[in-house]
């Protein structure tokens, strides 16, 4: 991998990510929105790849593009009672506008106060083996905590979908 990120590739991927996000928000068809979400996830994986984060990019494709977005599509298609229901009316509301404005303000503050942390680059890009060693030694405890949280969510989802009282 080269030391500098190729600007052409970066521009293409950045355009794909931001353009996809705009398309996802502007389309009225929820199924199209889900497919745009998928496109954004793949483009984000491309951005990770540009940063030499090979493992992260692959996991992004496998988990987010390959599984989460299938799940999103699946749920959307299961809950639509008729095909025409996929096209949602445009429903502006004050609450939504206020939340959007607050989020925009928070984002603006975060970007203006952002101080880039430039760490020292390692000699060579760490491979997946180095990553695994680091994750299961230094970051062992956070990893286990995260997996416990996910397990609790999983058990909760099963309990909930059964009706709650062991039926």
């Amino acid at each position: 991998m080269s030391e500098t990120v190729s600007p052409v590739m970066f521009l293409i991927l950045a355009f794909a990510t931001i353009g996809g996000a705009v398309m996802m928000l502007s389309t009225r068809n929820v199924v199209h929105a889900a497919f745009w979400l998928l496109e954004i996830m793949v483009a984000t994986a491309g951005l990770y790849l540009l940063l030499s984060a090979e493992f992260l990019a692959l996991v992004q494709v496998l988990v987010y593009a390959g599984a989460v977005s299938v799940l999103v599509l699946f749920v959307i298609m299961l809950t639509l009672r008729r095909r025409e229901d996929a096209i949602r009316p445009y429903e502006p509301s004050w609450a939504g506008t206020i939340i959007a404005a607050l989020f925009l303000g928070a984002l603006y503050m975060a970007i203006t106060r952002f101080v880039p942390v430039i760490a020292e680059m390692p000699e060579k890009v760490p491979g997946v083996a180095d990553f695994g060693r680091e994750m299961f030694t230094t970051w062992m405890l956070p990893f286990e905590v995260a997996s416990l949280v996910l397990l609790a969510a999983l058990v909760g989802a099963v309990w909930w979908s059964k009706g709650g009282d062991g039926r």
């Binding site: 996991v59 494709v61 496998l62 593009a65 390959g66 599984a67 977005s69 299938v70």
Partner: peptide, 9 residues
Amino acid sequence: FAVLSLVPI
């Protein structure tokens, strides 16, 4: 496997 997981989509 990551690439193949895109086929069903």
